[in-house]
Design a protein around this nucleic acid. Structure first.
Length: 355
DNA sequence: AAGCCGGGGTG
DNA sequence: CACCCAGGCTT
């Protein structure tokens, strides 16, 4: 299928965007950009790439940073395991590999946070090795052009698309071809109402001929959304606020929020008893909480109804054993809060409070 | 193989 | 509102 590859590359040379990571062959910078761009639009990831590249110009800078600092820089981008794995792999490359980025596909793919797509991207962009990328753009372009109805979220479907992409790959210029097919999917063969009239591949496009552009690609499973109710407690003492690191395996791992009680239903009054039973802070006379703010926070797979209760009447001394056991519960001065990484929901609370 | 993990843009 | 985005890890 030489026509396909040539047409894609010709289109790319004429229509490509000027993106910062296309000006380098430094595998560190390419890796950085690819992790940031996983499940993330170019426009959303761009400012984060610029910040990371400036703040951590080499893998050693990133490796020597505190994880909290990496998380803070990642704050707001989502899928925070990417940031944790990024930091883990930076330390591995810096210390175990003495800063030398692996240049073989298998070695690249064995790094934490790097799967088939990212390994192929780095191998082809940084080392010009012939591995075809298969991302959301490639699924869409190939499914339409070749009329492939295999579900893209099935194991068999993924293998089929990977095989097709690998066949089409221009083995002399794998990096350019990979960039080209993704850019084509992002700008021309877009998910909704593509302008097929000006498509350079309209002649051989199976989906266009059979009027199936809108049904392709096929996805089999629908994401089911769960509803959760978070009751946050704002506990202050001497101008400091109690915050807590989320270390459990749940959303926002290793980010910070407030002491919290999750309930099955919406609460009209603050569920203070579970908080006190937890023994986080001492019990004074008659603690009470008044409703500060409420938010509906929407994630792709969860809808969180959050209430922020401002608590008074607690003896807000941290109990010693808890304080020692995990330093994840801490009092922080209001003017130091900006140093911690918070999920967007908590940021929204701060914004409403005018902080 | 299925479930989990964010936040924002778009029609 | 539903769907998608330069996906990967865990179970």
């Amino acid at each position: 299928m030489k026509i396909f590859s040539q047409t894609i590359i010709r289109w790319y040379n004429k229509n490509k965007r000027d993106l910062p990571w296309r000006h380098t062959t430094d595998p560190y910078k390419i890796w950085l950009s690819e992790i940031i761009l996983q499940q993330t639009r170019v426009q959303q990831g761009m400012p984060y790439y610029e910040t990371f590249a400036k703040k951590f110009p080499t893998v050693h800078h990133l490796a020597n940073a505190k994880e909290d600092a990496v998380m803070k820089t990642w704050q707001g981008l989502g899928y925070y395991s990417r940031a944790r794995n990024l930091h883990h792999t930076a330390k591995f490359i810096s210390k175990e590999l003495k800063g030398k980025f692996p240049n073989e596909y298998e070695a690249i793919k064995n790094l934490k946070g790097i799967g088939e797509y990212t390994a192929a991207a780095i191998a082809s962009f940084a080392f010009n090795k012939p591995y075809a990328v298969v991302d959301g753009n490639v699924f869409r372009v190939l499914s339409r052009y070749f009329g492939i109805h295999s579900p893209i979220d099935s194991t068999g479907g993924k293998k089929e698309f990977t095989r097709r992409a690998q066949q089409l790959l221009d083995k002399k210029y794998p990096g350019v071809f990979n960039q080209a097919i993704m850019e084509f999917g992002a700008l021309q063969c877009v998910p909704h109402n593509p302008d097929c009239g000006k498509c350079p591949l309209k002649k051989g496009c199976e989906a266009l001929a059979k009027n199936k552009i809108a049904e392709l690609p096929v996805k089999s499973q629908k994401t089911k959304v769960s509803i959760r109710y978070f009751n946050y407690f704002i506990i202050k003492k001497n101008g400091k606020t109690l915050i807590k690191k989320r270390t459990e395996n749940d959303i926002w791992k290793n980010l910070y929020d407030f002491p919290m009680v999750e309930t099955k239903r919406e609460m009209k009054k603050p569920p203070l008893n579970p908080l006190l039973q937890r023994g986080l802070v001492g019990f004074n006379s008659s603690p009470s909480g008044s409703l500060g703010s409420t938010f509906k926070h929407v994630l792709s797979h969860q809808i969180i109804f959050a209430k922020f209760w401002e608590v008074v009447g607690l003896n807000s001394n941290l109990k010693k054993p808890i304080q020692r056991a995990h330093k994840k519960i801490i009092y922080v001065s209001d003017n130091q809060l900006y140093k911690f990484a918070f999920p967007r929901l908590i940021q929204r609370y701060f914004e409403e409070k005018g902080a």
